[in-house]
């Protein structure tokens, strides 16, 4: 019996990496917004849910494949995030962090209950013609949806990393994270950069939502499950760190998958909480400290 489980271990690890890549995307949005704006976006889960529904309706009504929808939902999420920060959160909060916290919390309540009202609480799933087709690695079959998600998540992380290190906008984002007045004095429009950062964070959710839909379900509360895991990843990887979010996503993904394999689906979650507690005790700054 145990040897059977062991032979499944490589498959479990690969499976965990695949799911971890999507976790990483959700965490990336969270960590970016936290690292630059120093606020926790309580509406993160609700916005992920919105992205999932967007992909769902694009598929149901216009018959657009969720992986194609990435190209629509991601930019749309960016615009949504930018707008809601620039003319909503930023304006209403008067620049006070505690107000931003309350506004994002309020926003999540509004979004979730609107979803409940318009889309009902039923779980929705879609099935793609190639959902069950897979790629033979020799020791395991890799489903196409998971493989696509994995590659797309990596590509997005690399693009984001390039944006942050190679472009002026990225440098400005990192500058604003630590020194707002200094940024204003070199002519950086700080409010714009905040909104861009919020937009990018929400855009990550847009992409994650599209990739989750084919392998998961959507209801008005789906987003929250992922955000709790994303919090663990952010703490594990280090608040504000892009590389930390990616690495943390993989670690949590594999922990969950292997834990599920050894202990069963629900007890397997114990590994995530265990990591969370251990990190808080032994390395509260996370693997990559507080770098942006």
């Amino acid at each position: 019996m145990f040897s059977v489980t062991l032979s499944l271990l490589p498959a479990g690890i690969i499976n965990g990496l695949m799911f971890g890549a999507i976790y990483a995307l959700v965490a990336l949005g969270l960590t970016l917004i936290y690292g630059v704006l120093h606020i926790i976006n309580f509406a993160h889960g609700a916005m992920l849910m919105l992205a999932l529904y967007s992909a769902y309706f694009l598929f149901k009504i216009l018959n657009i494949d969720p992986y194609i929808s990435i190209l629509i939902v991601t930019p749309a999420s960016y615009v949504f995030g930018y707008t809601i920060y620039r003319w909503g959160i930023g304006r209403l909060s008067g620049g006070r962090d505690q107000n931003i916290l309350l506004i994002t919390l309020g926003l999540s309540i509004i979004l979730e209950n609107s979803a409940l009202f318009f889309f009902t609480g039923d779980q929705q799933t879609i099935s793609l013609p190639y959902s069950y087709e897979s790629f033979d690695l020799g020791f395991l079959y890799l489903s196409y949806p998971k493989l696509i998600s994995f590659v797309a998540s990596l590509v997005i992380c690399v693009l984001l990393w390039m944006l942050m290190t190679l472009t002026d906008l990225g440098k400005a984002i990192r500058a604003v994270a630590k020194e707002r007045d200094g940024a204003r004095l070199v002519g950086i429009d700080v409010e714009h950069v905040f909104a861009v950062t919020f937009g990018i964070g929400v855009a990550c959710l847009g992409a994650a939502g599209c990739m989750l839909l084919p392998i998961f379900y959507v209801d008005p509360y789906t987003g929250n499950m992922f955000v709790i895991i994303a919090f663990t990843i952010v703490v594990l990887g280090g608040m504000g760190s892009i590389v930390g979010a990616l690495l943390g996503g993989f670690i949590i993904g594999v922990t969950e998958s292997v834990g599920g394999l050894l202990l069963g689906e629900s007890l397997g979650q114990i590994g995530i909480s265990l990591i969370f507690i251990l990190i808080l005790i032994f390395k509260p700054t996370g693997i990559f400290g507080s770098k942006v």
Binding site: K171, R174, A175, A177, K178, G182, A183, V292
Partner: peptide, 8 residues
């Protein structure tokens, strides 16, 4: 106080 970007 310079107000440099310490992380850059």
């Amino acid at each position: 106080g310079r107000k440099l970007f310490p992380n850059l």
